[in-house]
């Protein structure tokens, strides 16, 4: 009887210890579609420019533009997405899932020395991923 108790106790301790709550919500941020995603950037800034637009040899506008790259290899294969851009300085939104959205999202008539920012997100099934903010200081 004394010997029979030992396996019972060991089993109870083992069973009590072997199942732990290993699903830590705070640290579960590995899915690129998670609004709290904390991995490699899904949208990368490729280049940004401040250029002067001339008309008839005369400068008519100063424009800030950015080019970004979407790392589709991080997404589950077959994910249907569209780019969603917010101009932080003006609040304008460019939702490229909407066919009527104009492709030109540049800042026009910028003031030299001022920083102009964009928030880039992906729109997947009507919901947005984590925003990536990139800013460019107007420096023509």
């Amino acid at each position: 009887m004394k010997h029979a108790l030992i396996p019972v106790l060991l089993s109870a301790l083992c069973l009590a210890g072997c199942l732990k709550d290993d699903l830590d919500l705070a640290n579960r941020t590995s899915n690129p579609l998670d609004p709290d995603y904390d991995g490699p950037a899904l949208i990368e800034l490729v280049s940004d420019t401040t250029r002067i637009v001339y008309a008839d040899g005369m400068p008519t506008d100063i424009v800030v533009e950015q080019q970004v790259h979407i790392r589709t290899e991080l997404l589950p294969s077959g994910t249907d997405y569209a780019l969603y851009v917010t101009k932080v300085n003006t609040g304008e939104v460019y939702d490229y899932s909407n066919p009527d959205t104009t492709p030109d999202r540049a800042y026009h008539h910028v003031v030299p020395g001022v920083s102009y920012c964009y928030d880039y997100q992906l729109k997947v099934l009507f919901t947005l991923t984590k925003p990536y903010r990139y800013c460019t200081k107007a420096n023509p």
Binding site: L19, L23, L25, R28, L128
Partner: peptide, 28 residues
């Protein structure tokens, strides 16, 4: 307890394989 733990493991798989942000938000 094992059943509840298995549900959590299923949830973890569902998180890893979620294909749109809203699903992840609901899960989390």
């Amino acid at each position: 307890m094992k059943k509840a733990h298995d549900r959590l493991e299923t949830d973890a798989d569902a998180y890893d394989n979620a294909t749109f942000p809203y699903a992840i938000t609901v899960l989390k």
